[in-house]
Write a protein that binds this DNA or RNA. Structure first.
Length: 866
RNA sequence: GCGGACGUGGCGGAACCGGUAGACGCACGAGACUUAAAAUCUUGCGGCCGCAAGGCCGUGCGGGUUCGAGUCCCGCCGUCCGCACCA
């Protein structure tokens, strides 16, 4: 008998000594440096690169642990794996630090990078550090400026005045995607609307393609695809021109509306235009009441919060338009606060019976309603709308030539008729596809970002900086003693001659949204050493798309949509041959933790808490004062609630492998994982257990009685882990490894022979190698295997061992399990039935009668109906 | 309001195409080893009845389909997420 618990023989595994040793060994062997000319099939794994905020947090540990499992696994499977790391290094926190602590943003950022690089290296990630990039490095943003100019040249960048989201706290413009619930995504301040001249990336040029291509992203979460679809917001409708009954000076003789429901045209009661609509502008001079109304709309429009709660208000202009399907029918024209100038044509026709907004409006102003779509099964004569509009499909009623048609047919009938009619030389209607998506405003009034490479000249206008003059670098010395953009105050930096005419001119002082930086970094990783070009076309086309991208769901729209746009723009400008950056996407859940508060209501960090369980109730106390603490809800780790656990502390006391193992176990990776002290300890215990088992296996002297079962268990675990790693189900991988650990324990107790024990232990080690790479190396060594575990090819499953000779089937009687029956694997249904009927339990129930029905599902179950 | 996801032991979760509900882990109980503790190993662990064999109930609630439902269908309840005057 081999004892697995003879502590004298095996010392405890010491992560603190072993982890740096193996990290040095990997670095020395340059195992993770990827060659671009590697002939093996490629696999590109990427985790979203971090912002260098100062220190890594548990969310990073989880994210990078997952990516590293995939990278190490694919490497073992013979792929040429690209697994790089970099820094999303521009952004506001650097400027805030500069303001608060009088430090230079650059120095602050690079110091943070140095710290965090060290932290990531202590995790033992299999990263190719030779490809490291930082977006704040001129060697990086130089190329971004180059692409900006190329995009400009191709018409993919424009400059225009637009109503923009202004964050009054961060003193900068925000993109629509960066406004969440009316507040700035960083500052949380209520966003205001301002008119500013801005640079825009014309993401709407690709709206249709960005929308359609989502269907091809089969390895993206359905949820993210849906969110992007909703964000792009495609709709099909009709632009319809309504003739004005009388001429208005300075305005064409018709108002064009966009509608997705031309079928409801006979239910129209009014027409409404936005306050910014040209018609309103033309009328405003002669009408002081209208002037007042528009001013009110504008005032309300400044705060997003006001829009959300605003009552629908309108102003009757006294004008009328003619109904396009009946010129004798006149409709009143309102200016209304709920009509958006930015969507469609800034004008709508109101059909109160079938649109809730229109109904609210009509009820308020006494405009009435006429139902024109009757739900299937309703009596048309009894169908009345009072205060709930019906927006579903149905049969047309009260609609003259449309009566009796379905919704879709009526749409077609109206479209066909109006497309053929002419009003002052133009068709009355045209089919139109509309998108909710707006162009991406990239101008930011900040210092710590990529300068927009444009020079403004009095005579030439905005002039691109010549490519040879790139990069436009940020000035080194800046002061943050006053609010606003320091670039604007830096006369020396701003003043340059116009590249075109040589006259005195000024630089563009806005910098690019930092989301531009992260829109192409994954492409730069394919050849980060290039000096004169953003990318090498051949390398981009070789490595992209990223095979597996892993990051937080919070980027479902912003970063992922921008990157998809950027790839298309790079394709148009020749820097890439692919359109989609990420073939596989995985969005991982957050790391959450209990919260603790003392009697005074102050948050207490987990490190200062201890617990006592009395009578099944778990209570928390302060570690120093013994004061009782309230255990609060489990929430995302955040500095404000102090429920954070520092990865450095965990790595120092348990080792990186323990932290990684725990982050991969328990919760499914897409869901939140709860960090608990017990959980970490459980992981740490397993580290020791693996070490003990492997050493015991290496010393096994058994006679082989348990070999068959052990080998089966090992190969079953191997097959299961393969399947689950491929599907990123790391929690299940962990469970399979535990199961094999149990089987090995049992095998050693049952006197497994040394060959069988070391085979199983070797498989166990290779299974944990992607997850706990340092421990795996130590075990590899203990087993006497040559080379490094990180270099070892993945073991091959012995399929023969997965097939059982005899199988045990559950036997149900009337759907309830009553017995088991063991039959040969290849027994046919008849043989199984005979075996079941011979069972004692079955005979007792049947009392000599024949069952009414016998259902045999081969290999699964038997059910008797009696 | 619109769109989506989810609901399983004390806890995290597993259960593939409708086929043994609760794998694996955590917590907890019992035992072994120890002077003792820790560590480790063994063992138990959905609820109820029972000494046991065994039986009954059980996947948010109510119905349905099926030989058989955590899984499919209909209707509720609850939680979470995204969008939100988009015509």
């Amino acid at each position: 008998m081999t004892s697995t618990s003879s502590p004298s023989a095996i010392e405890r595994y010491n992560a603190k000594d072993s982890e740096p040793r193996w990290q040095a060994a990997w670095a020395q062997a340059r195992l993770f440096e990827t060659q671009n000319d590697d002939p093996r099939p490629k696999y590109y794994v990427l985790e979203m690169f971090p912002y260098p905020s100062g220190r890594i947090h548990m969310g990073h540990v989880r994210n990078y642990a997952m990516g590293d499992v995939v990278a190490r696994y694919k490497r073992a499977r013979g792929f040429s794996v690209l697994h790089p790391m970099g820094w999303d290094a521009f952004g506001l926190p650097a400027e805030n630090a500069a303001m608060e602590r009088k430090v230079n943003p650059r120095e602050w950022t690079y110091a943070n990078i140095a710290t965090m690089r060290g932290q990531l290296q202590s995790m033992g990630l299999s990263l190719d550090w030779s490809r490291e990039i930082a977006t704040c490095d001129p060697d990086y943003y130089k190329h971004q400026q180059r692409m900006f100019l190329d995009f400009l040249d191709k018409g993919l960048v424009t400059r225009r005045t637009a109503k923009v989201n202004w964050d009054p706290v961060d003193h900068t413009v925000l993109a629509n995607e960066q406004v969440i619930d009316g507040r700035g995504w960083r500052s949380g301040a209520l966003v205001e609307q301002r008119e500013l001249t801005q640079w825009f990336f014309k993401i709407t040029d690709f709206a249709q393609d960005l929308y359609d291509a989502l269907d091809g992203l089969e390895r993206w979460p359905e949820k993210v695809r849906l969110m992007q679809k909703n964000w792009i917001g495609r709709s099909e409708g009709l632009e319809v021109r309504f003739a004005l009954s009388r001429a208005v000076a300075g305005v064409a003789e018709a108002v064009t509306v966009y509608t997705t429901r031309p079928d409801t045209l006979f239910g129209a009661k009014f027409l409404a235009v936005a306050a910014e609509h040209p018609l309103a502008a033309a009328l405003v001079h002669a009408d002081s009441a209208l002037q007042k109304f528009i001013a009110e709309c504008r005032r309300m429009g400044t705060a997003q919060a006001a829009i959300d709660t605003a009552e629908k208000l309108g102003f009757d202009t006294g004008l009328t338009v003619r109904h396009p399907l009946d010129p004798s029918w006149e409709l009143p024209v309102y200016v209304a606060n709920f009509v958006l100038m930015e969507y469609g044509t800034g004008a709508v026709f109101g059909c109160p019976a079938h649109d809730q907004r229109d109904l609210d409006f009509a009820n308020k102003y006494g405009l009435g309603n006429t139902p024109v779509v009757c739900p299937e099964g309703q009596d048309p004569d009894a169908f009345v709308i009072t205060d709930t509009a019906y927006d579903g499909d149905g049969r047309m009623i009260n609609s003259r030539f449309l009566d009796g048609l379905g919704t879709r047919e009526a749409f077609e009938a109206v479209a066909n008729r109006l497309e053929g009619e002419v009003l002052s030389g133009e068709a009355v209607a045209a089919r139109k596809v509309q998108f909710r998506l707006r162009d991406w405003g990239v101008s930011r009034q900040r210092y710590w970002g990529c300068p927009i490479p444009v020079i403004h000249c009095e005579t030439c206008g905005p002039v691109p900086v010549p490519v040879d003059d790139l990069p436009v670098t940020l000035p080194e010395t800046v002061s943050f003693d006053q609010p606003g953009n320091p670039l604007e105050r830096d006369q020396a930096w701003r003043s340059v001659p116009c590249p075109r005419c040589g006259a005195a001119a000024r630089r563009e002082t806005d910098t690019m949204d930092t989301f531009v930086d992260s829109s192409w970094y994954y492409a730069r990783f394919t050849a980060p050493w290039l000096k004169d070009a953003p990318t090498d076309r051949a390398m981009v086309d070789h490595w992209l798309a990223v095979d597996q991208y892993i990051g937080g769901i919070e980027h479902a729209i912003l970063h992922l949509l921008y990157s998809r746009f950027f790839m298309r723009a790079m394709r148009e400008t020749g820097w890439s041959g692919v359109s989609e950056p990420f073939a596989g996407l995985f969005t991982q859940g957050m790391v959450v933790h209990e919260t603790y508060k003392d009697a005074a209501g102050a948050w207490v960090p987990p490190a200062d808490t201890k617990f006592v369980t009395e009578g099944g109730e778990r209570r928390a106390f302060h570690v120093k004062t013994d004061a009782p603490l309230a255990i609060g809800p489990i929430e995302k780790m955040s500095k404000s609630k102090k429920n954070v656990v520092d990865p450095d502390d965990i790595i120092a006391s348990y080792g990186a492998d323990t932290a990684r193992w725990f982050m991969l176990s328990d919760s499914p990776p897409e869901r939140d994982v709860i960090w608990t002290e017990e959980g970490v300890q459980g992981a740490a215990r397993f580290v020791q257990r693996v070490w003990r088992l492997v050493n015991a296996a290496a010393a096994s002297t058994g006679d082989g009685a348990a070999d068959a079962a052990l080998r089966k268990a090992a190969h079953r675990a191997l097959a299961s882990v393969e399947e689950d790693v491929e599907r990123l189900r790391f929690n299940r991988c962990v469970a399979h490894v535990y199961t094999l650990g149990n089987a090995l324990e049992e095998g050693l107790r049952g006197a497994a022979s040394r060959p069988a024990a070391t085979e199983a232990a070797g498989i166990l080690v290779q299974l944990i190698a992607p997850m706990m790479p340092h421990l795996a190396e130590s075990c590899w060594e203990a087993l006497g295997r040559s080379g490094l575990a990180a270099q070892a090819p993945w073991p091959e499953v012995d399929r023969a061992l997965l097939v059982e000779d005899a199988i045990t089937l559950p036997v149900q009687i009337n759907g309830k399990k009553r017995a088991d029956v063991t039959v040969p694997r290849d027994a046919d249904a008849k043989a199984v039935e005979a075996a079941v009927l011979a069972l004692e339990v079955v005979q007792r129930v049947l009392e000599g009668k024949a069952p009414r029905k016998v259902i045999v599902v081969p290999g699964r179950i038997v059910n008797l109906v009696v």
